[in-house]
């Protein structure tokens, strides 16, 4: 059989990137700050969000979208804060994509939001590829995960503007090496902002909340 070659030259992420751009335009209009939280399973995303929603309640209108492969437990935990929360059950998919966010928003009516948090599926590989239209991508890693985590998942850390080192309350007990962690973070993203915190004992929470408040304010100003 004679064959010929037909050039295509298409980026597989093109569709997701276009949908993400549409989401970004929509959130720019509504002045909603969108935060995409990435981490391995168990780094503390839901716990941090629970604490964040609780502490910002009354001050800002905040909603949360939670991606999980199977259960709705995280959404139930977050809903206790009283904030509008919606679960996206991704089944076989190991990450959220812009299409899932768009569809969830279409079926959900959280009212006007100052900030929308997206808890991505616990995974540091796949979610890194998918732009969700967020303003801030924050990657969490806990003091128990090994200081070289960023070296193992360079793209997740390279594409995040903020690294949250979580469970700092147990840093000493597990012999966490702060310098080594910072060195590996800087090796994949020299200018990444780093915040150490604990949702358990509250350490570092003020720094995180102030950083959020600043971003929420400037996003809503830009929308007017």
């Amino acid at each position: 059989m004679k064959l010929r070659v037909v050039e295509i030259q298409a980026n597989i992420m093109r569709k997701n990137d276009a949908l993400a751009a549409a989401l970004r335009a929509r959130f720019a209009k509504s002045g909603t700050l969108v935060v995409n939280l990435l981490s391995s399973p168990g780094s503390g995303k839901t716990t941090l969000l629970e604490e964040t929603l609780r502490r910002l309640a009354g001050r800002y209108r905040i909603g949360a979208l939670v991606g999980d492969q199977a259960t709705e437990n995280d959404a139930l935990r977050l809903a206790r804060s009283g904030a509008p929360v919606r679960q996206i059950t991704t089944a076989a998919e190991c990450r959220l994509d812009a299409d899932m966010i768009g569809k969830a928003l279409a079926e959900w009516n959280p009212g006007p939001l100052d900030a929308l948090f997206i808890e991505n599926v616990g995974n540091l590989i796949c979610p890194a590829e998918y732009d969700l239209g967020e303003d801030l991508r924050a990657v969490l890693f806990s003091v128990t995960e090994g200081e070289d985590k960023p070296l193992k998942y360079p793209l997740a850390f390279n594409t995040s503007q903020l690294a949250l080192i979580t469970k700092i309350d147990i840093a000493q007990a597990v012999g966490f090496d702060r310098q080594a962690a910072e060195r590996s973070l800087r090796a994949v993203h020299p200018s990444i902002e780093i915040v150490e915190l604990s949702a358990r004992n509250g350490q570092g929470m003020d720094t995180w909340l102030e950083l959020l408040a600043r971003r929420i304010e400037s996003k809503s100003l830009a929308a007017v």
């Binding site: 010929r4 070659v5 030259q9 980026n11 597989i12 390279n158 020299p190």
Partner: peptide
Amino acid sequence: AASPTIVRGRELQIVAMEVPA
């Protein structure tokens, strides 16, 4: 030195297809 600028390595591209002539 740490280099934040990734030049290559993120590709997910379709380049071409072969079809019967």
